[in-house]
Design a protein around this nucleic acid. Sequence first.
DNA 1: CCGGCTCGTAACAATTCGTAATATTCGGGC
DNA 2: GCCCGAATATTACGAATTGTTACGAGCCGG
Lengths: 233, 233
Amino acid sequence: MNAPLVTILDDEPDIRHMLRDVLEDAGFRTQCFARAREFEAALQKATPDVCLVDLSLPDTDGLALVHRLALEQGAAVIIISGRAQVQDRVTGLELGADDYITKPFDPAEVVARVRARLRGTRTPQQPGRTARFAGWTAFFDRYALEDAEGGEVPFSHAEGEVLRLFLENPKRLISRAQMQESLGGAAGESFDRAMDVRISRLRTKLREDPKNPRLIKTIYGAGYIFLGDVSWS
Amino acid sequence: MNAPLVTILDDEPDIRHMLRDVLEDAGFRTQCFARAREFEAALQKATPDVCLVDLSLPDTDGLALVHRLALEQGAAVIIISGRAQVQDRVTGLELGADDYITKPFDPAEVVARVRARLRGTRTPQQPGRTARFAGWTAFFDRYALEDAEGGEVPFSHAEGEVLRLFLENPKRLISRAQMQESLGGAAGESFDRAMDVRISRLRTKLREDPKNPRLIKTIYGAGYIFLGDVSWS
DNA sequence: CCGGCTCGTAACAATTCGTAATATTCGGGC
DNA sequence: GCCCGAATATTACGAATTGTTACGAGCCGG
C-alpha cells in the first residue's frame, strides 16, 4: 500500500513549503502547486487522497475549483484561507469542502485534520478479539470457545461477559461486588445468586472438574480468581 | 429515506437547545443528552449519523467516549469544546474525531460542518452493488444470491433490506431497535416479530444451521451480529 | 377469477437466564 | 475429628426472548 497522496495548492511559497515539510514528515506523499492550472493538469495523472487548497489564488476562483474537485474527484478537500469570517467558512463547506482551516494555522493541526479526512468513510470492522489460555481459544466475536483439538463450544452473552472479565484480569482476585459492578451493572440488591449460576455454567463449558477447578478458583469469603496464562490477540 | 439523525451531547442547556433548534431548522432529526450515560443508552436503540460531543462532561471523560464512538459506531464525531489550544484539537482529532469546533461558535458553521460530515459518510447508492462474503455473492440489483458453485437463490425485497443492513455493518451488534429504525422506518408500534420472521427466512436462504448459525448470530436480549468478512464491489 | 408470490400475524417450539430450592463445601468451635 | 452455620455449587423450574411454521391478506400477471 502506498502512502496517501496529499496535494498542496497555495501561491505563497512559505506556506507551501512548510506544509510540504510537515506532511512529508508525517509520512504522506505530497505534490505542490502554485497555480490552479498546473494543479488541474496533474489531476489527470494521479488522483490525490486529500487536497489542500488555498482560496486566494491568482489565476482562478478558488471556490469554483473546490466545487469541481468535490464533485468530480473522490478526494477530500480541505480549504486553507485567510478569510476567517463565518460566512466564508459556511460557503466553503457548502460548496463541497470537507474542512476549512483559517490562517494562521498550526502545522500539527493541519496534519491531524488531514489524517481525520483519510480515516474518512469508516467501516468499523472490529478485529474481533480472541484470547488463548490453557489450550482453549475464546472467540468473542462469534461467541465460541475452541479446544486444543478444534472442537467448538458456543457460549452465551452472559457467560461471555464473565469469561471476558476473567480473561482481562488473570491471576487477580475478583470480588463478587466487582463482578456485579462490571457486569450486571444494575441494582445488585436482590440475590446475586445469579452470578454463581453464571460461573457454574461457565465452568461446565470449560470442562472444569467440580472437585478440583484449575482455572476458575473460588476464594471462600472473598471472590474468585482466574488462573492460567492469557494471551490476547 | 429518513432525515439524518444528529445527536447532541452537552451539559449546558443553553448550548444544547440552541444546537437542537438550529439543526432541526436545517432539516435534521436530533436527540439531545446532558449526560454520557443517557447518550450511551440511546445508542443501543438507534445509530446516529453525526454525533456532536462536548468534551467538558461532568460524568465521563469526553475523549475516551469519543474514542469509543469512533471505534465502535459508524457515526461521524464532531467535538465541541471550550479548549482552543492546538494540542487539544490535535489529540481530539487523533483519537478519532472527524472535526473539532471551539466555543464560541457560530450556529451556521456547525450546520455546515455537520453537512460536510454527512457528505463524507454517506455512501451513494450505486446501481449495481454486489457484496462477497463466506462463499456467497449478493447481487442487490437482481435480488439474488450466488453460492460458490454458481447456484442462484433469489431473495425478496424485505429479505434484501435485512441482508444489506448486515453486510453494511459486519461484525457489529445490531439491536432490534436499530433494525426497525433502518428498515421498517415506520412506527414500530405493533409486533416486531416480523423482524424475527425476516431473519429466519434469510437464514434459511443462507443455508444456516439453525442449531449453530455461523453468519447471523443472535445475542439474547441485545440483538444480532453478522459474522463473516464482507467485501463490496 | 385463478395461481403464484410476498410478507405480516399468530400459534407453538426452543433457547436463555434469573430465581428458588437443594446439595455441597468451608471454617471455626468443641 | 465432629458439628454447625454460612458461603458456594448445582439443579430444577419458569418467565421472557427468540425461532419456526402455518395461515391468510394483498398484489400482480394471466
